[in-house]
Design a protein around this nucleic acid. Sequence first.
DNA 1: ATCGTATAGCTAAACGTTACGACAGAGGGT
DNA 2: ACCCTCTGTCGTAACGTTTAGCTATACGAT
Lengths: 335, 335
Amino acid sequence: MATIKDVARLAGVSTATVSATINNTAYVSPELRSRVERAIDTLNYAPDRIARSLKRGRTNLIGLIVADITNPFFTALVQTVERRLESAGYTVLLTDTDQHPERDLLYLELMKAHRVDGVILAPSVSTQGAEIARRATMPLVLVDRPVPGLEADFVTLDNPMAAGLAVGAIIEAGHRRIGAIAGPRALINAEARIEGYRACLSEAGLPIDPALVVHCDFREEEARQAAHSLLDADPAPTALFVANNLMLLGVMRALADRGLDCPRDISVVSIDDFPWADAFNPRPTVIRQPIAAIAENAADLLLARVTGARDAPPTTRYHSPELIRRDSLGPPPAR
Amino acid sequence: MATIKDVARLAGVSTATVSATINNTAYVSPELRSRVERAIDTLNYAPDRIARSLKRGRTNLIGLIVADITNPFFTALVQTVERRLESAGYTVLLTDTDQHPERDLLYLELMKAHRVDGVILAPSVSTQGAEIARRATMPLVLVDRPVPGLEADFVTLDNPMAAGLAVGAIIEAGHRRIGAIAGPRALINAEARIEGYRACLSEAGLPIDPALVVHCDFREEEARQAAHSLLDADPAPTALFVANNLMLLGVMRALADRGLDCPRDISVVSIDDFPWADAFNPRPTVIRQPIAAIAENAADLLLARVTGARDAPPTTRYHSPELIRRDSLGPPPAR
DNA sequence: ATCGTATAGCTAAACGTTACGACAGAGGGT
DNA sequence: ACCCTCTGTCGTAACGTTTAGCTATACGAT
């Protein structure tokens, strides 16, 4: 592999001049510049970013730690973040914690060792704020889920609003008994969504029945069980609010288990849209997160920190969701 | 940030000894070893991988270039590759070409500049073999799609077999007139799948009607148009073989456009399974690629090259698909 | 002519590691 | 007592850049 010395020798100049022409960091006469450029071309030379990083003290690498790359939400996030960072001259170092809380810390250490210039973290669990803070010596922005006790920029969906939008639409369709499949209690997001559900209910003057809320992990099978237990309630809910896309699958399966037709027998609205929802049966009515906006916001915030352009105390940015009306929400069945 | 010098000073030894204890590269007496370890602990020291990389000439970074991270096939690939490489001590540098052919080269250059130890490339287009070869100075393994003129390890689905499995099942169900929505001609994969389709047809003694094969991009909308043109044939096919998951969506939409019921009026079998297929209507009968096996194979192959364990000439590994029977394949309609 | 000043380009010192060879001391064989 | 070998530790060059500071040249003002 050609080094800057080879280029310098071939062009008959010093390495300093080569560096100056590459980085536009000092005036170089047209004569020398063109000689250098020719040499670079013929040698197919590209500066060694490792050496450059060592000298400069920054790597142009950004760590991206997501909780589950398999979830289309994170996939879209990764895509947008990557595109945005790439256009700013940064490359993404990706890891996937697969929802294992301890990997947040592990990968943060990894990122630190690789001397990334900053990290975008979609935490897999909302604890360990202090631990994360201790390890995050580089700029850090949180996305999707907050971490209590961690002072950092944070970009997220307006979760209460999302729940309100969903439950509001359900109420508007005429439902009075609305069950909720909530996420795990440990997830602040999940709690915020359930808070939004309760707030919307009481605002409409509807009673809040604890029996109509069941918590479970963001997983298909658990949501299926949860839906069954909810459907066993007496009287059974006529509509279900589901807090996440994976859980929606479980819920739909539970309905199928019981031969219930959605939306004729029961309505369902969930948070998180996904590609191909149109091919589902029924096509689900959902709350769509503005993933691109969230991702761009997070990337820009981090970039501003990394370049030093931003030095303000950390803030939180909430993004507004959107209701996508499809077929899974209808009026309650006449009895 | 603490450097190795700080550790050495605090432990009262030389940097060489610190390096030796960290890397187990020479005998260090228990006495010194424990002093060094204590110093590392109190300073919260982690070796600078940039400096280490510069010295060692390797970065423990592996580039992963995929054609479309939004496609669940690539998502699963990324996840498995990342997990595999991580357990071997490597970190993934991810980029997404989003099917732009010129980005293959661009990102290859980027990876080269970052001095990755190797690259796994899922090419977005099957041309430019020579260009890629010229740029790929590091070990490279190709996955999913071949690149003619590029000598490299290659891991892929057995595409003719996949098509054979699909078309075989269709024939077995009693169909005689089977349309095919093929991928773009430029993609060798797509061609291989269509080859498999033809081979299977002639093996069964069925005529090959060129009017029943239509090529289009791996996109939903194009596939929808293609399906329409196929359904206009006279006599119309009673079953459709679809070469890719995205195209399946378009095909299903075309059926919906015409009020056709699948599988009662027409059967469909496609290549590529995806999560949540169970929530579709109808649940699609598909050919499932062994993504995990492909990803692991690719990662292991690359690792073997990177560590120098493997020095054999490049080979191609074909992985066998599996037929997943669901609801979109039935007998042809009685006329 | 002389001097001062601006400036193009060069030399060399970092950046934080690793690893090669040197070195000092211990121990054993003669 | 001497030498040789072995071994644990150390000094330091090198990896490929960037950049601070220096040199030499040119040119304008005096």
